[in-house]
Structure formats: structure tokens, C-alpha cells
Design a protein around this nucleic acid. Structure first.
Lengths: 121, 121
DNA sequence: TTCGTTGTTCGTCGAATATCGAACAAGCTA
DNA sequence: TAGCTTGTTCGATATTCGACGAACAACGAA
């Protein structure tokens, strides 16, 4: 498990962020993180192999959309909402609203028994 | 020159629109159309072969971002701002603002002598 | 130390994308 | 009719992307 790279706020690239947010599964992941709560890997369920999920989370991280924190063998992920809003005001909000209206989620959902108050027990 | 396909407003797909807007050159094209004016092909200059430009304009059209009108051998293109705002409120505005702040244009610019008042002479 | 859990990385595959030049089609214009 | 202009389409090629399973690395627990 190598040290993950997180671009600084001023390094965020608009095309890269747009590309990261153009996949239904990744939109679903962002929606799952939209409430601002930190989520453990295990809470995020998606209909793909774990290596594929790891790939998508890496794309989001590399684009600066999410931040990953490591704790032992576990990883926790949060949406970098504030950084994104600073560089691209309104973009994430508009995306989340549109994705909610159309129910775009790529098959992603939170694991049973997880809610924003029970995260990271 | 075959009849171009334009998806209806209710057929617009969020991931597809996001993907169409994730390329710097296409962002540049959208910016060139942002004032709502109809532009002729010849007014849009980009640092790629004409077949490549045709491809990018097709991607935008197929995603429902732009509308193409044909007149003789010429084509004119407009941004479907109203349709996009109806389905994805605020998305295009946030993109244009961010792209303007970062000057993302993919090398696209309007041909010399073109401005919003002189279009389509 | 030996497992088991967790997430990353690697190799591979097929599909999609970006790009170019060349050929083509459709409509003006001379 | 014969060019000219304009934009699309066609191959061809190189790259990227999404997906998978397998192997690996790091850490906690038994």
C-alpha cells in the first residue's frame, strides 16, 4: 500500500475533474459521500470486483475529488467538497442535484446498517 | 452530409454530458458558444485537423450539448443552454465559470473579425 | 509466527477515444 | 457542366479506459 497522491487545491484540473465525474459508478460514489461523512471502504458497495472499485476510487483521488486516509489496513474516504467548491463553485452541487434527480448511482450503495451517524465505529 | 441526430431534452444523459465536457478542446468550443450566439463552422478555430474538429462537434451534438443547423453546405451551431439548464440546473454555468477562471480552452478561439454581433453575415 | 483482512498493483483483455489524411457528398458558383 | 467550398465519413493507428483475476504488501489478531 503505497502513499496515495492527493493534488493540492490549486492543482485541480477542470477537465480531469469532469472526466472523473463522467462515470456512473464514480458519480454513485460521490453521491454516497455527499453528506460529508467519512466512509470506510467496506461501507461502499458497488457491483464490480474490488480491484475495479479500487481503480475508481483512485481516479477520484488522483483528480482531487476525494481524500483518502489510512488507518492500519483500513482506508477511509471523504469528499473534498470545500476544495472543489473553492476552485469550481457550484459544480459539485449541480452534479449532485442532477444525479439525484435522475438517480444516477452506477449500482453503488452504502452497506446495510451504515448511515451518517454510524460511520467509522 | 447525413442528417445529424439530436437527442431530446428528456433523453440527455448526465454521464454522457459530463464526458462530453471533460475534454479541453470541447470545453473551449462550449465557451466559444457561451454567449448564445449561433456560430458558423468557419468561425471556430481549433489546432486540430478538420476531421478531428468535426468529431468533437459530433460528440457535443450527440450528447445534446449543442445543436447543429445546416444551410446549404454550411453548418451553424448553438449551445443548448436552455435544455441543459432544464435537466441539469447550474451545471453549464458552473462549468463556464470555472473554465473562464482557469482559461481552459483547448486552443479554441473565434476566427479573427468574428464577434457576437457580426456572426452569420 | 502464522493467519486473515484489506486494499493496491500487475497483467491482460476488449471497447472506446483521439488523431490524422484521404476520399466522399452536397450544394454553390462560374 | 466543371470546379470550389464545406463538412462528413472512412480507414488506420496509438492511446486510454473499464473490467477482471491473481499476486502482493501491510497490518491486526490468534
Amino acid at each position: 500500500m503505497r502513499r496515495a497522491h492527493h493534488p493540492a487545491t490549486e492543482e485541480l484540473s477542470l477537465p480531469e475533474v469532469m472526466a472523473a465525474l463522467s462515470d456512473p459508478l464514480r458519480i454513485g460514489l460521490v453521491r454516497a459521500l455527499a453528506d460529508g461523512a467519512e466512509r470506510g471502504w467496506g461501507e461502499l458497495w458497488a457491483p464490480v470486483a474490488k480491484s475495479t472499485l479500487s481503480h475508481h476510487l483512485r481516479v477520484l483521488r488522483d483528480a482531487g475529488v476525494t481524500r483518502t486516509r489510512q488507518e492500519g489496513t483500513r482506508c477511509f474516504v471523504t469528499l473534498r467538497r470545500q476544495d472543489l467548491d473553492e476552485r469550481f463553485p457550484g459544480l459539485v452541487g449541480a452534479l449532485l442535484e442532477a444525479a439525484g434527480a435522475e438517480d444516477v448511482n452506477g449500482g453503488v450503495h452504502l452497506a446495510p446498517g451504515s448511515d451518517s451517524t454510524a460511520a467509522c465505529r
